[in-house]
Design a protein around this nucleic acid. Structure first.
Lengths: 227, 227
DNA sequence: CTGCTTCAGTCACCAGAGTGTCACAGCTGG
DNA sequence: CCAGCTGTGACACTCTGGTGACTGAAGCAG
C-alpha cells in the first residue's frame, strides 16, 4: 500500500502500442512509466521501482525475457510479458524466467487490465524494498552495490548472488540445496564445499569482524540472513 | 512449502481431458486430486486443501467462475481457469472472481505447467502464514524459525523436525512410532530412547520453565502439542 | 604471445555441534 | 511396595563447518 495509484512500467518499442497501453492503463487508474528500450526500462525501474511491469517480447536492444530475468534479480514485482508470438516455447521461457503472465497480441484492453489486477492482487502482500539496511550494512540489490559504513565493498559474482538470495529471504532459513540450486544450478545441489568457502569469504567482507552477525549458520541445514 | 510434491485439484467434467491433465501434471511432479463436478471439487478442497486448483469453465452443475468464487471465500490458493471459450467477457469475469490465470484450450502441456509453476511461485511468497503463535511462543514453519518472547531460539534439525510434526498435528496425539517414523525413518520405529532424549532437550529450549505446557506426555502412548 | 590479476574450486586440518547411549532418579498406577 | 515408564545429565563418537593454502581457469593489458 505504498501509493494510491499503482505505478506501472510499460516497455514496448512500437510507439503506437505504447500510446494505446498508456491510455488504457490510465483509464483504469494506473500511473504509467513508459520506456522504449530495455536499457531505458531497467534504468527507470532501478531509479524508482514500479509496482508492476508490462514488457513486450521483441525489443530493439534485447528481448523481454532478458529484461524479465534482470528485473527478477532484485525485484519481485509482477511482470506481464506481451507478444505477437503465441509459440509455446516462448511462453514457457518467459514464465520460467520469472514472468507472471504471458499475453498474446491481439488482446482486449479489459483482459489486460483484468490480468494486471490479478497479478497485483497476488503480489499485494510482499513489500518491495530493493535497498536493505541493517546496522551499518547497506545492500542495494538494484544497483548491485554493498556498503559498510558508507564504504563500497567489492563482491564477486557468486558472493553477490549468495548475498542477494539470503537478503531476499531474510529471516528465513535457506537450505544448502536451495542456495546451491539458485546460485550454481540444479546439477550442483550436492556440492556443499564451494558453498562453505564462498560463505566464508562473504563473511570476511561484510561481517563487522569476529562473530558472524548477519549470516547465521544452522548446522546441518543451511544459512539465514538475520533480519 | 508444506509438502514435497504440491497437491493440485483438477476439476473437469470431460474425462478425456481430466485423464490427460492427470498424466501431464504427474509427470511434472505434482500430486493430482481429480473431480468431475463442482460439488465434488469443493468437498475435496475443503477436506484436504490443495496447493492450487485447475478448473474448467463449463461444468454440469455450475460454472468454473462460481467455483472460483466459493474457493476464494476461504482460500487464497492459486486458481487457473481453463476454457474453450476465448471470449474476453468470460476472461475478465473469471479473473475478477479471483482466478490467477485464464487459459484457453487448446493449450500445450508445457505452457500449462509453466503457468502453474508461475502461479505457485507467486503464491509461495505470501503464503497464508504457517506461523503458529501460542502464548509467547512463535513457530514459523516456512522460515524454520522459533521465537520465544521475540528471541530467536536455535533448534537442531531433529528438534525442529519433532516440533514441526507436533505443531502440524497440534491437539492430536502422536504415537512414539509415528514420530520415530517421520523424523528418524521407518527402520527406527522401536528406538524410543533417543526420542525421549530429544523431547527433553526440545522442552528445555521452548517450554517456559518447570512444567511442560506445550509438549504433553501421554504415558505409554506418545506426545501431543497442546493447542 | 606473455605475464599479471582476479575468481572459483579443491583439499586438509581442526574445532565444535549434533546425536545416541547409558545410568540413575522420579513418577504413577496397580 | 513394586514394576514399568519417563525425564535428564554426562559422556563419547561422528560428522559437519570454517579456514587457509594451493591449483587452475579466465580476462585483460602491454
Amino acid at each position: 500500500m505504498s501509493a494510491e495509484t499503482p505505478r506501472i512500467l510499460v516497455l514496448d518499442d512500437e510507439s503506437q502500442i505504447l500510446r494505446a497501453l498508456k491510455v488504457v492503463l490510465r483509464e483504469a487508474g494506473f500511473e504509467v512509466v513508459a520506456a522504449e528500450t530495455a536499457q531505458e526500462a531497467l534504468d527507470r525501474a532501478a531509479v524508482r521501482p514500479p509496482q508492476a511491469a508490462i514488457i513486450d517480447l521483441v525489443l530493439p536492444d534485447g528481448d523481454g525475457i532478458e529484461v524479465t530475468r534482470q528485473l527478477r534479480e532484485w525485484s519481485e514485482m509482477p511482470i506481464l510479458v506481451l507478444s505477437a508470438v503465441g509459440e509455446e516455447e516462448q511462453k514457457v521461457r518467459a514464465l520460467e524466467a520469472g514472468a507472471d503472465d504471458y499475453i498474446t497480441k491481439p488482446f482486449g484492453a479489459r483482459e489486460l487490465v483484468a490480468r494486471l489486477h490479478a497479478a497485483l492482487r497476488r503480489a499485494g502482500r510482499s513489500e518491495d524494498e530493493p535497498v536493505v539496511r541493517v546496522e551499518g550494512l547497506e545492500i542495494d540489490l538494484a544497483a548491485r552495490a554493498v556498503r559498510r559504513e558508507g564504504e563500497l565493498i567489492h563482491l564477486t559474482p557468486i558472493e553477490f548472488d549468495l548475498l542477494r538470495m539470503l537478503v531476499r529471504n531474510r529471516g528465513r532459513l535457506l537450505t544448502h540445496r536451495a542456495l546451491l540450486n539458485e546460485v550454481w544450478g540444479p546439477e550442483y545441489v550436492d556440492d556443499i564445499q564451494p558453498l562453505r568457502t564462498h560463505i566464508a569469504r562473504l563473511r570476511g567482507k561484510i561481517e563487522p569482524q569476529g562473530q558472524p552477525r548477519y549470516i547465521v549458520t544452522d548446522p546441518g541445514v543451511g544459512y539465514r540472513f538475520s533480519s
